[in-house]
Write a protein that binds this DNA or RNA. Structure first.
Length: 607
DNA sequence: CCGACAGCCCAACATT
DNA sequence: AATGTTGGGCTG
């Protein structure tokens, strides 16, 4: 720490495993820090590219250091070290693929506090004043805590993060410094360019691929998308007992492998290949040459499914080996999942829309033919989405027959992913509740599980889920019905008598753009953000905005500025209803009948 | 130097 | 009041 004339307070840390070293000048402090940095092969930061290393570099220059004396090299968007690898964990955790696939969406906001809270169960230290006003003791504790969080983010769980970084760096053929700063498209570009060089291929320019392969031939279902994607089967509403969920193992990578798909082989120049059509498109695939992507992605797929995935579950291996296999198989999954999508992304250097389109088209072909075959075998089909189908289970033999059929007729590996004691489907797609044989409940897409809804709804919904988890047979539903009814009525009563706190009533929505960036309309979370900005609280893109619905003003208020008295009970009553109706619909339970909702809602004008 | 893809649901907003 | 659009959050 730097001794300052204006600093006050004691210098104790309250910990005997660390002590504070004081410096009388900033130059001495920096010298010592630079010496320390040079002693390590890795330096971890959180936002060091944009702040810490940049700041240190500039302070040093200002204080008269020469560039040789500073162990930092600044790039335009990154900061490197002369000796050692600088990993900016902010950049790595910001990567959507890392966030979603590697960490299962556990952290919401990409801040040190939010990530460490989610992964380490510890957040940043709260401080009593702005950083520049802290006592020696509090400042030191605050900085130490930040440092420990950053380091622990690479240490927890047997150093999974460093293992993941190592695995992804090897798969992508990128140095750790580059891999941790790039998105999946950068990783896959590097991997494919390396393969071009190994084979002596000339790497095409983006516009060369574009001009020779042209564009798409299907129409997307969603306006503004470039081509038609996966197929979603209309669910058969109702409760279905003994349902098996089958899915294709790594569907899109498997399609690229078995259909010889790549930018060179799609729409190839040979006249004789033109009859080798991709179903549901105007495209054809080469019969003369093998596609590099097909082989590369196919091999990675096989490595994952046949080597790393089985070993990640092998009880004979040490914990350390198990975690390595687990990390590699999930790293491969991240890369494989993106390997089709990048060809449909216009910024990808080998962008090839007809290729991406063809992969999705074969996917639809595969699932729809499998569904037809299932029906032909007398198996009921309840639902399906992209690569999965929900089937009745007349007998194990029938499912085996279907799996075998898929292998011989489609060359696709279909497998039983899970089996449900029962599944509740409404008529909504991408919305269901399934109870597994071990009472575990899977909930997909239902409002009750979404992150932005108020805590009180999540809690009530969780209770509903636990009731449904105990249902073993159709006859159990009548008891469950009574308990659900009590649950919902209880929630109404608490709402009406204002027993829920403002925090429990708060919606938490991520604001995707800067507050001023909303020109087309003004959604509620933006209205709340505007009010916060007015009172001096800054709101940036990516922040969570907490607000409640009120009867005053524009109908919403930030939690900080609201009071319990102005809560819009009617609006919340509507939310309880719509959240629960989604599930009850599927169970064929009438909401109004269950709760006597008509009578209840009469208490709330506007409900 | 860099953000993989499409499809679906819901609530609120804007427009007709 | 009916209808289309936007934005967020989700599935795969």
């Amino acid at each position: 720490m730097l001794r300052r004339s204006d600093s006050v307070g004691d210098a104790g840390l309250g910990r005997d495993d660390f002590e504070i070293e004081f410096f009388d000048s900033e130059a001495e402090l920096l010298s010592s820090l630079f010496k320390t940095i040079n002693g390590y092969p890795f330096v971890l930061t959180f936002n060091g590219d944009d702040f810490d290393l940049r700041y240190l570099f500039n302070r040093a220059l200002k204080l008269g250091f020469t560039r040789e004396q500073i162990p930092i090299e600044l790039g335009r968007e990154s900061a490197g070290l002369k000796y050692g690898v600088h990993i900016d964990l902010y950049k790595f955790f910001f990567n959507r693929s890392i966030q979603v696939y590697a960490f299962g969406n556990k952290y919401r906001e990409v801040t040190l506090d939010s990530i460490s809270e989610a992964l380490l169960d510890t957040g940043k230290l709260e401080i009593s004043a702005s950083v520049s006003r802290l006592s020696y003791s509090e400042l030191a504790s605050y900085c130490l805590q930040d440092s420990e969080l950053v380091q622990n983010l690479t240490r927890f769980d047997g150093e999974v993060v460093m293992k993941l970084i190592t695995a992804l760096s090897r798969i992508s053929y990128l140095p750790i410094e580059d891999m941790t700063r790039q998105g999946v498209s950068g990783w896959i570009r590097s991997m494919m360019f390396k393969e071009h060089r190994d084979r002596g291929y000339i790497i095409p320019r983006s516009e060369e691929v574009r001009n020779s392969k042209g564009s798409t031939s299907t129409t997307a279902i969603i306006k503004g998308k470039k081509y038609k994607g996966g197929m979603v089967v209309d669910p058969v509403p109702g409760v279905h007992f003994n349902v098996a969920v089958l899915d294709f193992a790594s569907l899109y990578p498997s399609i690229m492998k078995t259909w010889n798909l790549g930018y060179e082989t799609i729409l190839c120049p040979h006249p004789e290949c033109r009859k080798n059509r991709v179903p549901d498109t105007d495209h054809w695939v080469c019969t003369q040459r093998k596609a590099m992507e097909s082989q590369l992605i196919g091999s990675l797929r096989d490595l994952r499914i046949k080597w790393y995935k089985p070993r990640s579950k092998d009880r004979g291996l040490s914990a350390n080996m198990l975690s390595w296999y687990q990390v590699v198989q999930s790293a491969l999954k991240v890369v494989l999942n993106a390997s089709y999508g990048v060809f449909g992304a216009d910024r990808f250097s080998l962008y090839c829309p007809p290729l991406a389109e063809s992969v999705a088209a074969v996917g639809r072909y595969s699932i729809s033919n499998t569904i037809n075959e299932a029906k032909r075998l007398g198996i009921e089909v309840f639902y399906g989405d992209t690569d999965s189908i929900f089937l009745g289970t007349p007998s194990i033999g029938k499912l085996e027959e279907l799996i075998q059929w898929s292998k011989t007729k489609l060359s696709m590996e279909l497998e039983v992913d899970k089996s449900y004691r029962y599944v509740a489907l409404s008529s909504r797609k991408k919305n269901y509740l399934g109870v597994q044989d071990d009472n575990r409940v899977d909930i997909k897409g239902l409002t009750g599980k979404k992150r932005h809804i108020p805590e009180f709804l999540k809690m009530t919904f969780a209770s509903l889920v636990s009731i449904l988890g105990q249902v073993k047979s159709p006859s159990d539903f009548s008891e469950a019905r009574g308990r659900i009814s009590d649950l919902v009525k209880d929630s109404y009563a608490k709402l009406k008598s204002r027993k829920y706190s403002l925090d429990e009533l708060a919606f938490n929505m991520m604001i995707g753009k800067a507050v001023g960036g909303y020109t087309k309309n003004t959604p509620q979370h933006v209205k709340a953000a505007q009010q916060l900005t007015k009172t001096g609280t800054e709101i940036k893109a990516g922040d969570l905005v907490s607000f409640v619905k009120v009867v005053t003003g524009t109908g919403v208020k930030p939690v900080k500025l609201a009071s319990l008295q102005e809560i819009d009970v009617g609006k919340y009553a509507e939310y309880i209803r719509s959240t629960f109706e989604q599930v009850l619909d599927a169970l064929e339970i009438d909401y109004e009948e269950l709760t006597g909702a008509k009578k209840l809602e009469a208490f709330f004008p506007g409900a």
